[in-house]
Amino acid sequence: MEEELKTLVTDLQKELSSCTKEADVLNVKSKYVGKKSRIMEIMASLKDMNVDDKRKYGSLINNTKKDLERIANEYLENLGNTLDVNFDDTLDYDVKMGSLHPVTIVAKEVTDCLKKMGFTIVAGPEMDSEFYNFEALNIPKDHPARDMQDTYYLDNEMLLRTHTSGVQVKAMEKYGAPLRICVPGRVFRNEDLDASHENTFFQLEGMVIDKNISIENLVGVMQELLREVFHTDVKVRLRPGFFPFTEPSYELDCSCLICGGKGCPTCKNSGWIELVPGGMVHPNVLRAGGIDPEVYNGFAFGLGLTRLAMMKYKIKDIRVFNAGDIRYLENFKID
């Protein structure tokens, strides 16, 4: 009995597969599930079976009938939907796509993460005054950072900003406290170009001003940020640093993702990459921004976006960023 029922199904499928017209399918359907079909005969014989057989075959027979009907109906339906195909459906094509600059992609990731933590993305001018670039940041007149060697001074008494930190005081003046901003942007240093030095690169400034901000908040934000950017727990270490506009200051290093911490030219064989300098905003900077350091404090950090992109994409030569070689840049699909 089981054998016969199985055969009915395969026979139906076999006969259907040779049908191309609706009428043929209907004929086949009637042959297998019509009033005079074999399955109906079998169902009719069910009432003469003994109790054991009834129990054994009852549902199997019923299900087979349903299957036969379903298979025939499905075939009928598909027949109506069949397209008249007269093209090569196996052709393959390359995807043509533009690209975003790797720094744009990384900046988007970082700012997306910071936005979730309540930061606003703020812009500042690439050409700025000595006041905002230095004075307001507690960098006095004879500080080495102001040397011609490092800074591009201009013939209109302005300069090309050497860091995005100049936006700190501007933002404080404009928006007051409390404040959470990040500033992705281009900065300029008078350097000779080589594989690890550029005169034009990107930083991202971050600053939080609020009441009762601690070093622990700073560590928390940094960890969250790096985890998000690298999609993995990156090994980080903090060590003391020195910047005139933060106190205490620190340098945050992350283990070199290019060599995995073993040491390579990118990390100068130390296994660590200096990635995020920062610290607690210096009271003088708060004052320059018109904020009372007795009431508010906060932290600031500067993330090397260009360096981050190098780490993320394992780029060994910094010069590719501004060279504009499309053959290279087109690798950077829109993330």
Binding site: M97, A107, T120, G324
Partner: peptide, 30 residues
């Protein structure tokens, strides 16, 4: 509070040009 949205607007345009018109974003010296 979102004080500014310059970055977002820049990104929207860049993404449009790269995805719809297959263009490549480049950075040149100033």
């Amino acid at each position: 509070k979102e004080h500014e949205n310059v970055f977002t607007q820049e990104y929207e345009v860049k993404r449009l040009l790269a995805t719809k018109y297959n263009m490549h974003e480049v950075h040149s010296y100033i």
